[in-house]
């Protein structure tokens, strides 16, 4: 035994004999989301749940683990990934429709930059002000997970994988709803989509075709398709304001959260209730079939004309532009994929 080791042993014995707890090392690898050109610099990451590699890894396992909500009636279980599939930009996907109270899930992308509110109806359904709260309420919602939260926590605790992952992320093997929500929130906040063709165009790395550029001009002009006030553009690359708005879909005056148009090619069917199967149907509706309801968003300047009245060529260009918002890297990124199938 070397002198150093002997000294450590003596020190260790002294500590134990003094009744001090033996210190375990808890040094999570904290990190910030990388700053991305044209993206917001502010995020909704709370001070008590900074991103760390261990927390994100734990969140990723939890996100994909359907054992956490398996029952004898549903032995296949439920996980977040059942309704939020990577191939569908973490929406449910057209071949996997999942309705909760008549609404489809919203895609989980760039949520770290959403400093406004979450969900189709915002606080009307889930009175959550943070992503952590939103996840807690989702886990507790019997319409989403069939088990009460204490059962979900018990299931997690019974899976041998997790105590060590919680310890690495939070410094303790004690598994709680709060830590579970925090870990899931950390993983979800890393789901950033920043490599679409439009992003590369903005960074000067790629050109848009003439058709795509014409579509972009239509997208960002009031006398064109008039999309940008709600759905962004060069100055708002999240492609949503995340505001609530009445959109003139039908005679209803119920407002819904304005969804991001990022990865819209992967998030069919469209609208909160999935009523449109294709982008063409969505464009046709906003072009010619808008209902000018009493509380329609005043940003829909052409509602009293039935819509923005695009020509077939303009519709084609607008669709071409919308397809530049697809981010193939996002839907295939191994960092976001199911860790149980690696």
């Amino acid at each position: 035994m070397g002198m150093g080791a002997a000294a450590c042993l003596v020190l260790s014995c002294l500590c134990v004999s003094c009744g001090d707890p033996v210190e375990t090392s808890f040094n999570p690898a904290y990190f910030d989301l990388p700053e991305t050109a044209f993206f917001p610099t502010e995020t909704n990451i709370p001070a008590d749940n900074r991103l760390c590699a261990e927390g994100v890894e734990l969140g990723r396992y939890l996100f994909y683990d359907n054992r956490i909500a398996a029952t004898s009636d549903h032995p296949e279980g439920v996980s977040c990934s059942e309704c939020h599939r990577q191939a569908a930009a973490f929406d449910c996907g057209a071949d996997n429709l999942r309705f909760v109270r008549g609404g489809l899930p919203l895609p989980l992308q760039n949520l770290a930059y959403n400093t406004r509110a979450l969900g189709w109806s915002g606080t009307a359904v889930y009175p959550a002000t943070t992503l952590e709260d939103f996840i807690r309420l989702t886990l507790a919602d019997s319409a989403e997970f069939a088990l009460p939260t204490d059962s979900i926590i018990a299931h997690i605790a019974a899976i041998p994988l997790y105590p060590k992952l919680y310890e690495a992320a939070f410094g303790t093997q004690d598994i709680t709803l709060d830590r579970t929500a925090k870990a899931l929130a950390q993983f979800v906040r890393t789901l950033t989509s920043t490599h679409s063709k439009f992003d590369r165009y903005m960074r000067g790395e790629e050109r848009l075709s003439d058709e795509e550029m014409q579509g972009y001009v239509l997208f960002t002009t009031e006398e064109g398709a008039d999309c940008f006030h709600c759905h962004g553009g060069a100055g708002n690359v999240l492609f949503s304001t995340y505001m609530l708005a009445v959109n003139g879909l039908d005679e209803s005056d119920v407002p819904y959260r304005i969804p991001s148009l990022r990865n819209i090619a992967h998030t069919a069917p469209y609208m909160h209730d999935g009523r449109f199967a294709t982008l063409e149907e969505v464009i046709d509706r906003y072009s010619e079939h808008v209902y000018a309801t009493p509380h329609i968003s005043p940003l829909m300047h052409h509602a009293d004309e039935g819509g923005v009245q695009l020509t077939p060529r303009e519709k084609q260009c607008l669709k071409a532009f919308l397809l530049t918002l697809s981010d193939e890297d996002f839907i295939t990124n191994p960092r976001f994929s199911n860790p149980f199938t690696k």
């Binding site: 917001p40 610099t41 400093t115 406004r116 960002t220 060069a234 708002n236």
Partner: peptide, 15 residues
């Protein structure tokens, strides 16, 4: 302005 709400006031480049 990179952050909302100010960033949401952007005026299109074409204009």
């Amino acid at each position: 302005f990179r952050n909302p709400p100010e960033s949401l006031m952007f005026w299109p480049e074409v204009l």
